[in-house]
């Protein structure tokens, strides 16, 4: 056998095709933002009493996170969590969840 078996070739090609999307999903912003999903559900799809992000617009999320950090918005726990991030990080988290599938 001289070449690459057909199945493997398809796999390799498909694997390569996946790299851009996969690399994006595992980038530092994704890892940082996915830490939120423990409370808010994968991709923000909360199934219980925690607020969901899915369906929210980026500017809504950005404002909420910034207001939690500044104390402008009342909270039980989000004030404590938002203070752990810079404004730039909060904006990146908001952009990430706004871009995830609804």
């Amino acid at each position: 056998m001289r070449g690459i078996p057909a199945t493997l070739a398809v796999c390799l090609a498909f694997g390569l095709a996946l790299v851009p999307a996969a690399a994006k999903a595992a980038d530092p912003v994704a890892v940082m933002a996915d830490a939120c999903s423990g409370c808010h559900g994968t991709d923000g799809h909360s199934i219980g009493g925690m607020p969901a992000f899915s369906g929210k617009k980026q500017d809504e999320l950005t404002k909420a996170l910034r207001d939690f950090k500044s104390g402008a918005k009342e909270a039980t726990v989000m004030d404590r969590i938002a203070k752990g991030y810079s404004v730039e990080q909060l904006d990146a988290i908001a952009a990430y969840f706004a871009s995830r599938k609804k």
Binding site: S37, C39, G41, S46, G48, G49, M50, T76, V77
Partner: peptide, 23 residues
């Protein structure tokens, strides 16, 4: 009201962290 809200969030927390881990 605050303690009650956190108790409700505890249940929501459990549902979400379970979903995020196993579903």
């Amino acid at each position: 009201q605050f303690r009650k809200k956190e108790a409700d969030f505890a249940v929501g927390w459990y549902q979400s962290v379970s979903q995020d881990s196993w579903a």
